[in-house]
Simulated scan of single mutants.
Amino acid sequence: MKLEVAATQLEALGNPTRLQLYRTLVRAGDDGLPVGRIQEKLDIAASTLSHHLKRLVDTGLVTQERQATTLICRANYPGMQALVGYLVDECCADAKCASTPAEAAA
């Protein structure tokens, strides 16, 4: 993953509404959720939801599929795994990592 892609995705997730939206879709699993159900769960206006969904789709974190008149949104799990992998791939490459929470606090 390129630095610019990771930065764009992390920036998108830096908004509380988008982070809540993304976590809702991650929890929904592979079936995803229809836009109307997301709107009910998050209790936000349709235009606000549309704005935030577009940002997550544009960054590759969410996919959408039209099923007749229903728009299904899903977390892009390979994209999420790539981002998490990018963040932890080189964990402690230049230093020893703490192996316990107590060591981390010290």
Score class of each variant (00 low, 15 high):
residue 20 Q to I: 13
residue 63 T to Y: 05
residue 22 Y to E: 07
residue 30 D to S: 13
residue 77 Y to F: 15
residue 92 C to F: 07
residue 69 T to E: 12
residue 42 L to I: 09
residue 2 K to R: 05
residue 67 Q to Y: 08
residue 36 G to L: 13
residue 36 G to F: 14
residue 35 V to P: 00
residue 82 A to C: 11
residue 6 A to D: 01
residue 31 D to L: 12
residue 96 K to S: 13
residue 104 A to W: 06
residue 91 C to E: 05
residue 100 T to Q: 11
residue 10 L to D: 01
residue 64 Q to C: 09
residue 102 A to N: 00
residue 25 L to R: 00
residue 95 A to Y: 11
residue 96 K to D: 03
residue 14 G to K: 10
residue 86 Y to S: 15
residue 1 M to I: 05
residue 105 A to T: 00
residue 24 T to K: 10
residue 20 Q to G: 10
residue 102 A to T: 02
residue 64 Q to D: 07
residue 50 S to A: 08
residue 74 R to F: 06
residue 78 P to R: 05
residue 1 M to W: 01
residue 71 L to G: 09
residue 99 S to P: 00
residue 81 Q to E: 15
residue 90 E to V: 02
residue 41 K to E: 08
residue 70 T to I: 14
residue 42 L to W: 02
residue 93 A to P: 01
residue 16 P to V: 11
residue 98 A to G: 12
residue 90 E to K: 09
residue 6 A to N: 01
residue 6 A to K: 04
residue 81 Q to P: 00
residue 58 D to P: 13
residue 99 S to K: 10
residue 40 E to K: 12
residue 39 Q to Y: 04
residue 22 Y to G: 06
residue 79 G to I: 03
residue 9 Q to D: 10
residue 23 R to Q: 10
residue 47 S to H: 08
residue 11 E to I: 08
residue 37 R to M: 13
residue 106 A to Q: 01
residue 19 L to A: 10
residue 88 V to R: 06
residue 101 P to M: 05
residue 69 T to C: 01
residue 60 G to R: 07
residue 93 A to N: 11
residue 100 T to M: 04
